[in-house]
Design a protein around this nucleic acid. Structure first.
Lengths: 155, 155
DNA sequence: CTGCCTGCAAACTCTTTGCACGAAT
DNA sequence: ATTCGTGCAAAGAGTTTGCAGGCAG
């Protein structure tokens, strides 16, 4: 899904649900849909303030559920304390996250078997799967060999 | 793994690493290995205090890493804020958690394909998998139909 | 004009940590 | 006797929320 399509989708979500279109929400929306990588609430706040310095932390936290609810963002919890967000590609491809334990970089990879697995869960437990989360923690092979992680951005 | 085997394993873990055997650690150990279901740190504190009321929250939190480190407990993070713990069965079976969105009950189910998937990750990304986490959020079919979740304990 | 939305700051939840005392080795 | 382990309370991190004023519809 393009940034423009995401913007449109979010605005119609607001309209449909009777939520107001405010400058703060638009600023947050704009910087969110322009992200190419995973980002945190704190980063989103920082970026949004460059566009509109009246944006507060509270509004970012109140807007994030609207963006995940409208399906333009996916929320990713890798168990590190803070949550990550990522622009939703739009297709319903099943994905998993691989998290490098050295540098915390998150890779998104496909996990097509999850569709089959969900149906297995459904039939075995009598539960209707609504979502899933597959995360692999891994170590760079080069880190293991050389003590340096190639993904780690230099400080 | 039996409760008795877990107790033995933990004590030898303490000995091997030069950690002291204290009454508090033993009390926490005993209640932990007698749990049949998932439990939280707070619950563990409550149970341990029935055995030894000198046990503090801090000691529970300091003892939990010792128990996961010695492999007698597994730590499960379902992204609900608090972490859950479960007696480690001992075999190295790959498992996933299915969490009921209605009653928060956690089901442990096998996920044998994770071994294969880890190796795929390894070869595709050049990363060495160290652990993984697979969680399916699901809704009771009966809840969907009747509005009541059969697993929810009556209040 | 309503009343939803906002910024601010305080509250919250779970977990970790500094400190001085107490107990295991 | 040494240390390590402990309880207590405060600190921490990330997120949520109560409030009084502001702006969208």
């Amino acid at each position: 899904m393009t940034a423009e399509a995401s913007r449109t989708k979010f605005k119609s979500y607001l309209a449909t649900h009777g939520f107001r279109v405010t400058n703060q929400r638009l600023a947050i929306l704009d910087v969110a849909v322009s992200q190419k990588e995973h980002f945190t609430a704190e980063q989103l706040l920082e970026y949004a303030r460059r566009v509109d310095d009246s944006v507060s932390r509270a509004t970012v936290y109140r807007t994030l559920p609207l963006m995940t609810g409208s399906q333009i963002l996916r929320e990713i919890d890798i168990g590190s304390g803070e949550k990550y967000y990522l622009l939703n590609p739009g297709d319903n491809v099943q994905v998993a996250q691989v998290v490098c334990v050295d540098c915390d970089k998150i890779f998104e990879i496909s996990a097509p078997f999850m569709e089959w697995y969900s149906s297995t869960v459904s039939s075995k437990l009598g539960l209707r799967p609504v979502s899933h989360r597959l995360q692999v923690s891994a170590q760079c092979i080069s880190f293991h060999d050389t003590g340096r992680c190639p993904h780690r951005s230099p400080k």
